[in-house]
């Protein structure tokens, strides 16, 4: 099995504040990994380390066998890495800094020194593929949140990355755009793209990831395994503050169960049938 990433006891601190504590795991080519954790557990920091934007204060990270550190990630490796790894930020506004959507999509390929003709063709094809051609000449700051997210994803896909890192991909999206994103990510999965998403949207993780790691509130790894096994471990998810215990009434009966903020109440169905 080809390993894309291998992290060994990676730690990171913002001054005196610890963000990650000895996190180790690996990601295989074509795999789909969900990084689950509550707010402030270190998910975004982990993705930034995996994108070579910041470097661990302790431990090592390897991409396709090459160590990612400040001195190593230069020259040919840097170009290759930037071409192969795309990062979708949680907040699309920070990612959209060009005058128009067209320029935004062209930014990555131009920095990688593709010819202007090729870049233009690529951008047009990508706009068509994602159904956002109508936005082509719009300045990004005039777009809605959903449109911004689509453009942010398109701007990353324009370099045709093999690995897609996504920070809270469904954050702030309306249901329709969420469905669009689900379908897109499913398509990308069939194209053997490696997908790593940091999220607390358990339904997204359940639908799209094969595997999950959980970061708890001590910024360490609380679990690592197949997505179905991880989501079945209610005690661990409760302890990591990803789901919560919830009580409510059904008629005169007080019913308590755990669920994530957006999960459906499927477990009610057998209960209601019993009544």
């Amino acid at each position: 099995m080809d390993l894309v990433y291998r992290l060994d006891k990676v730690s990171y601190s913002y001054g005196a504040s610890k963000a990650l504590d000895e996190v180790s795991f690996s990601v295989s080519r074509g795999g789909s990994l969900a990084i689950l954790g509550s707010n402030g557990s270190g998910k975004s920091t982990l993705l930034k380390i995996m994108n070579g934007l910041i470097f661990p204060s302790a431990g090592t990270i390897e991409f396709a066998g090459a160590t990612l550190d400040e001195s190593g990630l230069t020259g040919g490796l840097l170009r290759c890495f930037r071409e192969r790894v795309g990062f979708v930020f949680s907040e699309p506004d920070v990612q959209l800094f060009c005058p128009t959507v067209f320029d935004e999509l062209a930014f990555g390929p131009l920095q990688l020194e593709l010819s202007e003709k090729e870049v233009k063709e690529r951008v047009h094809e990508l706009l068509d593929m994602l159904g956002i051609s109508a936005l082509s000449e719009r300045p990004p700051y005039t777009l809605s949140t959903g449109e911004k997210k689509k453009v942010a994803i398109a701007s990353v896909l324009s370099t045709n990355p093999d690995v897609l890192l996504m920070d809270e991909p469904t954050n702030g999206l309306d249901p329709r755009t969420q469905v669009w994103l689900f379908e897109l990510l499913r398509e990308l999965k069939t194209l053997e793209k490696t997908c790593v998403m940091a999220t607390h949207d358990l339904s997204l993780a359940e639908d799209l990831a094969d595997r999950a790691i959980v970061l708890d509130e001590t910024h360490g790894k609380a679990a690592d395994g197949a997505i179905s096994d991880v989501l079945r471990d209610r005690d661990m998810l409760l302890k990591a503050n990803i789901i919560h215990e919830h009580s409510h009434r059904h008629g005169h009966v007080v019913h308590s169960h755990t669920h994530s903020p957006f999960a459906s109440h499927d477990e009610h169905l057998p209960f209601l049938k019993e009544r």
Binding site: K48, L53, R79, R82, F89, V94, F97, T159
Partner: peptide, 8 residues
């Protein structure tokens, strides 16, 4: 970071 991430 977003610029660096896309090859700048």
């Amino acid at each position: 970071m977003a610029m660096a991430s896309r090859g700048f």
